[in-house]
Design a binder for these strands. Structure first.
Lengths: 168, 168
DNA sequence: CTTTATTTTCATTTTTTTTTGAAAGTTTAA
DNA sequence: TTAAACTTTCAAAAAAAAATGAAAATAAAG
C-alpha cells in the first residue's frame, strides 16, 4: 500500500471511529490529518486535503484547540496561522479522557447524587428498583471517575502494565 | 423530589449521556425506563411512557436485545410480549463494553494492523510521522483491548479494587 | 380454515446535525 | 490611514439520523 492511500484510509477510519463515539466525523478527520502531518498546516491546507469549507475548517480547528489536541503556531515572516497536533498518543488519550470526564461524567454524577437521595416507600417495588439502579450506577460512575484520575496522572506503560499484571 | 419526577429526570439524563456517546437518545431512554421498572413492560407501555411510536418502540427494543441489555419475556395466558432489562449494573457495563469492542475496537485494530505495515522511505518525515502515529495508536488500542478482556471476566469490586489499590 | 391480536417493516416525514459561503471582523504592514 | 491578508461568524442550505404510521406479515385462538 502507498503512503498516500494509507493516509486516506487512516483519516477515513479515524472519522468513522469518532462518529461512532459521538464526535463529529469532520473533527476526527481533521485531527487524524494533523496527527500524521509532521509539520503544522494552514487552514487552506486542511480545507484542500479534506475538501471542506473555510467555515467548517475554522470551527473544527477551534474545537480541537478547545479539546487540547491542537495548538496554533505562528511562523516568523508568515502572516497566516499554522495548526499543529499533539503527537504523543498517550497524551492524546489523557486529554480526551480529561475533557469527557469534565463535560459528561462530572455532570451525570451530580444528577445521580440528587436522584439517589429521593425518598419513598421502602416496600414499593418501583421505588426499590429505582433506588437500587441509581445507587449502583452512581457507584460505578464514581469508580470510573477515580480510575480516570489515576489514568490522568499515569504513564502509559505503568498504567496498563500494572492493570495487566494484576489480572494476569 | 417525588419518585415520578426522579424517574423522568433519570430517563432524560440517561438519554443525554447516550447521545453524547453515539447511542440513539431514544434507545438510551427506553433502556433507562426498563432499568428502573421492576416488572417487564409491554411495547404499549413503553410507547405510552416515552410518547414514541410503535415502530420506534419495536426497533429500539430489538436493538436493546441485540446489545444483550434486554430480554423478551412471555407470560402464560398473555398473548403479547414483555420486555425486561438486565438490572445488574456491572453486567450492563460489561455487555456494553463487549459489544463496542466487537463492533468498533476489533475492526479498527484490523485496519491499524494493515496501516502499520505500510512501506516507505525511512528518511521521509511524512512517512516517519505516519508510521509512528499509527503504530502507537495500534499499541494503545491493543492495551485497551486486553484491559477490556480483563474487565469482561472480572467482578466489579475486584476490578476497580485492584486498579485503585495499585495506584493508591 | 378464518378471524383477531400482535409484531414487524419500511417509504415517507420530521427533526437534528453538519456544512457552506459570503459578510463582517480583525490584524498587519505599507 | 488605507488596504490587503487573513480569521471568524452565523443565517441558510444540505445532509444525515431518527421517528412516524399504516400496511404487510406473523402467530395464536376459535
Amino acid at each position: 500500500m502507498e503512503l498516500a492511500e494509507a493516509r486516506l484510509k487512516f483519516i477515513e477510519a479515524w472519522g468513522k471511529l469518532g462518529s461512532e463515539w459521538g464526535i463529529n466525523r469532520t473533527m476526527a478527520q481533521v485531527h487524524a490529518l494533523l496527527m500524521i502531518s509532521p509539520e503544522a498546516l494552514t487552514t487552506e491546507e486542511v480545507m484542500a486535503e479534506l475538501s471542506i469549507s473555510r467555515g467548517n475548517a475554522n470551527m473544527t480547528l477551534r474545537d480541537l484547540i478547545d479539546w487540547g489536541l491542537v495548538e496554533k503556531q505562528h511562523k516568523t515572516g508568515e502572516r497566516k496561522e499554522f495548526f499543529y497536533a499533539e503527537k504523543d498518543v498517550w497524551t492524546i488519550a489523557r486529554r480526551v479522557a480529561e475533557e469527557r470526564k469534565k463535560r459528561e461524567l462530572t455532570p451525570i454524577i451530580k444528577i445521580l447524587d440528587q436522584l439517589a437521595g429521593v425518598e419513598g416507600d421502602a416496600k414499593d417495588p418501583a421505588y426499590k428498583t429505582f433506588k437500587t439502579t441509581v445507587t449502583d450506577i452512581n457507584k460505578l460512575a464514581n469508580n470510573v471517575n477515580k480510575t480516570l484520575d489515576t489514568m490522568l496522572k499515569a504513564e502509559e506503560n505503568w498504567f496498563f502494565g500494572s492493570i495487566l499484571k494484576v489480572f494476569k
